[in-house]
């Protein structure tokens, strides 16, 4: 049986991104009072896992670290078709950077039991470091392919995947167990179904704190985070509006010129 773990994160609803503030003292993102949703790229990771589950005899666990309200995204994954949910939640885990998050998730995966495949979204929509997947693979001491946009072959212990590059892609063969971080090109995530929501009633979410994971408090959360955020600022977003006048042809020519000058069109 293929054992898959999908790591997911509850993030503030990207539609409400304008309401996220930065704490001037701690320089952390203030996410309180914002509705939490499943990180968009984690939906692609879930979809990949669900497609593999449909193809193979597979057991799909979903793992998240977060405060108690994050349980809602684990439940959502159960409704999408995951078999078992795990939420790592403890006050001591608060303030974790990417490394401390990866460390905690790695401990969670070790406690769940051996996994053949760990899937993560390429990045979260709030922190967006793209570090958790690679750090998780390092801590688990297994190979990783980042930016996976297609699973080409998935039989046996050597899988073949296509991974995005800035100007193309590379084809990689990777030996399981492995971590894959996925891009949105990989698939179109399915939406919740009423039947799935009903089936989720019968599925369990296990909640573990640091005692269950047997990790020292100094190794997790803010205390276990080596990252020091020296500065965090809000980027000003401003739109310049210029009205173009003239005949249709003149306006079209001017528009094309403006777009070319701004680098949106290639000169050829």
């Amino acid at each position: 049986m293929l054992r898959i773990v999908v790591c997911v994160k509850a993030v503030p609803d990207p539609k409400e991104a304008g309401r996220i503030r930065i704490d001037p003292v701690s320089r952390a993102l203030v996410r309180a009072d914002l509705p939490l949703v499943l990180n968009p790229l984690d939906k692609n990771a879930m979809e990949a896992a669900l497609e593999l589950k449909e193809q193979f005899d597979a057991h799909l666990s979903v793992l998240s670290m977060g405060p108690p309200p994050a349980e809602s995204v684990v439940t959502e994954c159960l409704a999408l078709g995951a078999d078992q949910g795990y939420l790592l939640s403890d006050r001591a885990l608060a303030g974790a950077d990417a490394y401390a998050t990866a460390y905690t998730l790695a401990k969670g995966i070790e406690k769940i039991g051996p996994a053949d495949l760990v899937l993560c979204g390429r990045a979260s929509s709030d922190g967006s470091t793209e570090w958790v997947g690679p750090e998780l693979a390092t801590l688990l001491d297994i190979p990783i392919v980042t930016m996976v946009k297609e699973i080409v072959e998935c039989t046996g212990e050597w899988w073949k995947v296509k991974a995005s590059l800035d100007n193309g892609y590379r084809v990689v063969r990777v030996k399981l167990p492995a971590v894959l971080t996925v891009t949105r090109e990989l698939n179109i995530p399915r939406t919740l179904s009423f039947s799935g929501i009903i089936q989720a009633r019968r599925k369990q979410i296990t909640q573990w704190g640091i005692d269950d994971l047997d990790v020292p408090e100094e190794a997790v959360g803010l205390k276990g985070s080596p990252t020091i955020v020296s500065e965090m600022t809000t980027r000003e977003s401003k739109r310049d509006v210029e009205m173009i006048s003239g005949t249709r042809e003149e306006m079209a020519e001017r528009l094309i010129q403006e777009l070319a000058d701004a680098g949106f069109l290639s000169s050829s």
Partner: peptide, 10 residues
């Protein structure tokens, strides 16, 4: 309820 929120989302 959480389930009703999911029904709404679905």
């Amino acid at each position: 309820s959480e389930e009703q929120e999911m029904l709404k989302q679905a």
